[in-house]
Amino acid sequence: MLNLDINGRRVTVRKGTALLAAIREAGFEVPTLCHHEALEPYGACRLCVVEVREEGRDKTRVVTACNYPAKAGLQVETESEAVVETRREVLDLLLARCPGSPVIRELASSMGLHRSSYPPDQNRDNCILCGLCVRVCEKLGFTAITMAGRGAEREVAAPLKEPPPDCVGCGSCARVCPTGNIPLVDRDAMRRIWDRDFEMVRCTSCGRAYITREYLESRVEASGLPASHFELCDECSRSRTAQTMYRHMVLDDKEASHE
């Protein structure tokens, strides 16, 4: 365990805790866009900057809380002038990049920023290159999409910008995207994502298409669960459960009446 000081409050955390976790545990808020608890810290959005002074040092420095380890004797300011200026600038830049994104607009206006200082980009989508989609895809074991290009040309793309062969159409990328920028369309038992069409499996009971076949197969294999677990959609599983419980109830009643 180690002690540190966050906004004047003494906080005790386990060794190895990331500063962001320590700050949030202490009840302070730090905005993030690229951070996800299930993934390695990425340090790309730079919104989680805080100002720290290490023990025995005179100077403070601005660091990202997501990947900075909590250290004994550390003094942390989450809203200092330097922090607020840096965070605002990041949002100013993001607001110019994605002027149409409600998530970015809301975050920016929460810092009093209603218009960007820079000319807004025209004809650009709402990708902020936080990398969550790419990293989740990798975490799930598919690595179907990646970052391509560099500098201002950086973008999320499938290899060779073709429909990604390793994609199973799980849709996690679309769901974790903080700006909702990845299109996913389910229609007529087909799912379209990343310019690929995936056949969807229909629930054996109600016929609703509820998962792509490739995803289903990969998950049966990865989880080690029997395939029968995946046969019904969640609604029909629930109905089955209800019926089972009801049957048991009737049986119980009958047994009770026999006694």
Binding site: G43, A44, C45, R46, T86, E89, V90, L93, L94, A96, R97, I128, L129, G131, M147, G149, R150, G151, A152, E153, R154
Partner: peptide, 10 residues
């Protein structure tokens, strides 16, 4: 620039 972080890229 690799384009990973916002301040450098943007």
């Amino acid at each position: 620039s690799c384009g990973k972080c916002v301040p450098c890229r943007e």
